[in-house]
Design a protein around this nucleic acid. Structure first.
Lengths: 123, 123
DNA sequence: GTGCGATATGTTTCGTGGAACATATCTGAA
DNA sequence: TTCAGATATGTTCCACGAAACATATCGCAC
């Protein structure tokens, strides 16, 4: 979609043992909610069913000591969802890990990329 | 198995667009082959079927401009597999990315860990 | 009090990755 | 010339997660 297939991408998942984990999916979802103010809209944007988005948010909320997303039902516009302070914090921390890792691994990744076989078939 | 569930772990996957990707699974497999000199033994060690291990090695070999693993059939001991120079190089680069990311994200991850909910059930 | 738009959940269907199973093949050693 | 132990591959089966489908609920606006 909007990602350059020629540039290596780093997908990072932080695993907290049995307590859960957070990766690109949940992060992007939080991001979408922050931008749209709606679980449904965020899910739609990334081609994810409302149900799945809702479930992910549920696990995220249960995972931290305070919910990351608060929801409102009914009302003008039908309701909506917003990131709590903790929500913004967690998202920022995750993005920080991503950015730091990308920078720290820049050299190795470039070298790795150079070792790849030339594209076998341009489709 | 040997991973401390209390300490957050970073799982990193380097994605090269359509050309493939490398993550913990393939890296550990390469590692096992380097240590055991056998695809089968490496697979066994990580509870992976020989077939799956063999397939992963196949995609890895096809992914880079030179094979990462060379195999020998028959002979004393039935055969075996060893990492090529490129194989060692790729593994080292991936481990480097992992290490760099872990170090770079140390702060954020610790903070994230502090935001987790207290364990709900000690099992 | 009806409609709208979003959250909230349950149920069922379905595709896919992996496990399990089954062989075939290779070659040095005994 | 048989055996051992590893690579090499195809086929079938099944669990699990996600998608699809189906409702229910909420509350402001009109």
């Amino acid at each position: 979609m909007s990602d350059d297939p020629h540039h290596p991408r780093l997908r990072i998942r932080v695993v907290f043992g049995e307590r859960g984990m957070i990766g690109p999916g949940k992060a992007d979802l939080l991001d979408g909610i922050a931008r749209h103010g709606s679980i449904a809209a965020a899910g739609r944007e990334m081609g994810m069913s409302y149900k799945r988005a809702w479930e992910l948010i549920g696990t995220l909320n249960a995972m931290f000591h305070a919910p990351l997303v608060t929801r409102t039902r009914g009302g003008a516009g039908g309701g909506g969802a917003v990131l709590t302070e903790t929500g913004h914090e967690v998202l920022a921390l995750y993005r920080g890990v991503e950015a730091g890792a990308a920078e720290a691994g820049e050299r190795q990744i470039a070298t790795l990329r150079g070792l790849l076989r030339d594209i076998p078939d341009g489709k």
